[in-house]
Design a binder for these strands. Structure first.
Length: 455
DNA sequence: TCTGGGGTCCTAGGACCC
DNA sequence: TCTGGGGTCCTAGGACCC
């Protein structure tokens, strides 16, 4: 906790619905619900006019329609939301270089880096009002609720206190008196499951939470959350505002209007989703080692299966092949309502590999056993071929010279064989991975030199 | 025809290594 | 012939957030 109220949290009010009302004047002043409009849709955002009828985020659209039949139901225009969000984030970054977006409609700003003459309550209050005005101007009228306090935790709580279109600055020294009467569910990270566990222990308010020992909290909700709650109950929070947080995973999923039962159709869907994931990885310059499949059965049981490659990939065929093989091992009789494909363990394998190659060239023979690396024809090798081992190569992985054409094949254990084509003067080709028993592996050939593969 | 989609973080057990 | 202990990686599931 800082001595000054220098952490700002900004939250755009009913963001998606507000963008729709801004862009379509006929919707202004009317209930608007943005979310899935199909039979299995849920509400993403409800305008305040719709909230009067009891429509809430995460409610099924079916129920929302029952409560508010006259609302406009829209499926959302994410390009417009992204563009508006970017305008807002720009305004925030003009104020301080330390801006941490949490989503399209929320961000923390570190006011200690805003170049203010001081961090007194009057000064930060004036800045916060100015920011709210600027946001309204650049977005064409969108309102934001803002909280300013001595930590992220309290700034976020503060921004919630006077929604919509509100500003709350928590004066340093008054944090606990504000916090103690509040219900524990105001604490970010305390959801229904945790609320229920605490309720059974007789804990409802932050004041009651403060009276529970750390050992007891850890027993109740686990180590990480228990320790976290112990400190948050005392308004202790030193987390920094971190701009540029790295993406950890990329995924695509879909829920279908009626349960899927046809395996061939599921396989086709997974293949398409894998392609979308791989495309998004490439667009972002990312690649990942772990491919995950998510399956939600007819009864809402959710299964996940994953498989980790020896090297990162952004190749749609590899992601698809692995995702399909994960699907094959699941019993989907009874029907499937959701399918999804994700990639995690993200890295930039091209840079990693070039870096590794440079290191190898500089340090001579690496320490790994030399016989694990195929001897290279000295007549051509120096100029034509790089060491085929990827940065993630480890002793025990096979590295074998491709017998067919130019390129390298290398593989590893765990039943997965990975191949890649590369030469000294072309960038590495896509990493393709196969289950060891996949007949496609035997059919794999490096691309011809005349037509080196993209990327 | 209750219950989205895109994420993050945590837990717990087993494998494996030293 | 009785059973180390820590560390890391991987997998599956769950809670939570917007």
């Amino acid at each position: 906790m800082r001595p000054h109220a220098s952490v700002l949290h900004l939250d755009l009010d009913a963001f998606f619905a507000a963008v729709e009302q801004r862009d379509k004047p006929s919707l202004r002043g009317k209930p608007v619900v943005v979310g899935g409009t199909g039979g299995r849709g849920v509400v993403s955002t409800a305008s305040y006019e719709a909230r009067v009828f009891g429509v809430r985020s995460a409610m099924s659209t079916r129920e929302a329609r029952a409560r508010c039949p006259n609302a406009a139901y829209l499926s959302g225009r994410f390009e417009a939301y992204r563009a508006t969000s970017a305008q807002v984030m720009r305004v925030l970054r003009e104020c301080s270089p330390l801006v941490e977006p949490l989503s399209l409609d929320e961000a923390f700003v570190d006011l200690a880096e805003a170049g203010l003459p001081d961090l007194e309550v009057a000064t930060v209050t004036a800045l916060a009002e100015e920011l709210r005005t600027r946001v309204r101007e650049v977005t064409g009228g969108l309102t934001a609720s803002v909280g300013v306090a001595s930590s992220k935790f309290l700034a976020k709580i503060a921004s919630d206190l006077r929604k919509p279109d509100g500003l709350v600055v928590i004066e340093p020294g008054t944090e606990l008196e504000l916090l103690r009467p509040l219900h524990v569910s105001v604490i970010p990270g305390v959801g229904p499951a945790t609320v229920e566990r605490l309720r059974r222990a007789g804990v409802h308010t932050v004041a009651e939470l403060e009276r529970v020992s750390q050992e007891e909290l850890v027993r109740l909700v686990g180590k990480a959350q228990g320790q976290g709650l112990f400190h948050l109950a005392r308004a202790e929070d030193d987390r920094a505002v971190v701009p540029d947080r790295e993406t950890k995973s990329v995924s695509v999923e879909g829920t279908y209007e009626s349960d899927l039962t046809d395996r061939a159709q599921m396989s086709a869907i997974v293949t398409r989703q894998a392609g979308e994931v791989a495309q998004r990885l490439r667009t972002s310059g990312l690649s990942g080692r772990t491919v995950s499949l998510k399956v939600r059965l007819y009864d809402f049981t959710t299964l996940s299966r994953s498989s980790t490659l020896p090297a990162p990939t952004d190749d749609p065929a590899t992601v698809a092949r692995l995702a399909r093989s994960l699907l094959e091992d699941l019993d989907t009789s009874g029907g499937v309502r959701l399918l999804g494909v994700g990639v995690s363990g993200l890295a930039d394998w091209i840079q990693d590999d070039l870096f590794a190659a440079v290191e190898d060239a500089e340090s001579g023979t690496p320490e790994e056993p030399a016989d694990a690396v195929p001897a290279v024809d000295p007549g051509q090798a120096g100029a034509r071929w790089r060491d085929p081992r990827p940065a993630s190569w480890a002793p025990g992985m096979d590295v074998v010279h491709a017998e067919h054409g130019r390129g390298w094949v290398w593989g590893s254990g765990r039943g997965v064989v990975t191949v890649r084509f590369e030469t000294a003067d072309t960038p590495p080709g896509p990493v393709r991975s196969f289950r060891a028993d996949d007949p496609d592996l035997a059919r794999w050939r490096p691309p011809s030199e005349e037509q080196p593969e993209e990327q």
